[in-house]
Design a binder for these strands. Sequence first.
DNA 1: GCATAGTTCAAACGGTCGTTTGAATCAGAG
DNA 2: CTCTGATTCAAACGACCGTTTGAACTATGC
Lengths: 210, 210
Amino acid sequence: METPVESTRERLLNIAEQRFGEGGYEGTSLRAITVAAAANIAAVNYHFGSKEALLRAAVARAMAPVNTERRRRLDQLEARGAPTAEDLIRAFVEPGLDLVLRRGERGAVVARFIGRIAFDPSQRIRELYAAESDPIESRYLAALRAALPHAAPEAVAFGYVNMLGLLALHQSQALTPAPGGADAEVADTGKLAENLIAFLVAAFDRGLRS
Amino acid sequence: METPVESTRERLLNIAEQRFGEGGYEGTSLRAITVAAAANIAAVNYHFGSKEALLRAAVARAMAPVNTERRRRLDQLEARGAPTAEDLIRAFVEPGLDLVLRRGERGAVVARFIGRIAFDPSQRIRELYAAESDPIESRYLAALRAALPHAAPEAVAFGYVNMLGLLALHQSQALTPAPGGADAEVADTGKLAENLIAFLVAAFDRGLRS
DNA sequence: GCATAGTTCAAACGGTCGTTTGAATCAGAG
DNA sequence: CTCTGATTCAAACGACCGTTTGAACTATGC
C-alpha cells in the first residue's frame, strides 16, 4: 500500500491541535477529531490513552519549540549581561508570535491552539498548559525584576501575567472576531509582534507600581 | 407555603452565571445547573427556551449594570469636554472591576462569568457577548481616538482590544491559578483596578504606533 | 367551589459522549 | 511460509447530553 506521509499518531496530533484550537477542549469530540484525521476512534486510546492524554501530548509537542527558543534567547541575553525589559519582552513574545507570522497556516493553527488552551474555561486544562510553560517562568520573572529595579516585585509579576495573557489572546485570535478587522490588518502587515512589544514595553517601563 | 426569596427563574440565572463562569458554556450541563438551583430540568426550557437562551439571559442581566455605568461615565466625561485617555480607560475598567471589589462574593461570581464568556472558545458564544457590549464600543473608540491624536486609528483600536482582553482576563480570574498568588494579593489590597489602569494608561500614552 | 392560567414535576426521547472489546489486518523476523 | 507484535477496525458499552411530553400541582379571579 501507499506509505502515508504522516502516521496515524501524527495525523491525530495535527487535527487535535486544529480542532481543540477552534472549539476548545470540551467543545471538541474525539469523533470529530478521528473522522477528520481519517482514523478509527479507538486509535486515540491506543496511541495516547485518553482524550486528555491526547491533549497533553498535543500541548507538549506544540510548546516544545516555543520553550526551546525562549530558553535559547534567555541564555543568550543573560550571557551578554543585564538585558533590558524590552529585550526580555521581545524574547518572550516573539517566539510565540513567530508561529503565526513565519510558518504559514500550520503555524497559525498551532498558535491558536496554544492561546486557546492557555485560558481554557477548565482550570484542569489551564494547569496542564501552565505545567508546560512553568520551567522558564521563574527565570523570566527574575530577569524582569533585575531589569526593572524601580518596580515592586509584585508589580513585575502583575506585568508578567498581563504579558502572558495578552500574548495568548493574540495567539488565539480571539481578539479578531471579524476577518479584515483591526487586528487582522495589524497581523497582515507583519507588525503585530512589534505593536504588542511596544505596547508592553511602555506598560512595563512606566505603568508598574514602584 | 413559605415564600421563596428568589423565584425559580432568578435561582436559575444565579446558578447559571456561577457555573458557566467556572466551567464555561460547553463544560456546564443543564442538569448540574438545575440540581444546584433546586429546580426541575424542564424549568430551563419553560422559563428561557433553551440552554443558549439561558446563557443569553444571564449575559444580558450581568452586563446591564456595567453598560449602564459605562454609559453614564462616558456621558459625564463628554459633557465636560475633552476627556484624557486615563479618564476613558478608568471609565471603562472600573465598572468592570468594581463588580469584583465592591460587591462581595456575588460580584466576583458575576465578574468571572462575564470575563469567561467574553473569551469562550466558541465563537458563537463570544459573539453573544460582543452583541451585548457593542453599543458603547464605537463611542469609546471615537473618544479614545480624540484623546490620542498622536496615535494612528488602527493603533487605538489595537489598544482597545488589549484593554478589553486584559480586563476580561482579570475579571475571569484566569490569571490567578493559585490562591494567594501575585494577582490575588493585588486584588486583596483593593489595588487591582489602579494597577491595571496605570498599566493601560502607560501603554496607551506611549506604546501605540503613530 | 370552580374554572383558568402559570408553574413544577417525573419520565422518557433520540443522540452523542469517552471508552472498551475482541477480532481482523498489517509488517517484519526467523 | 509461519510466527509475532504492532496497528486498525467495526461494534458495542454505560453514561450523560439538551429537549420534550403530559400529567400534577399551585395560586388567583370569579
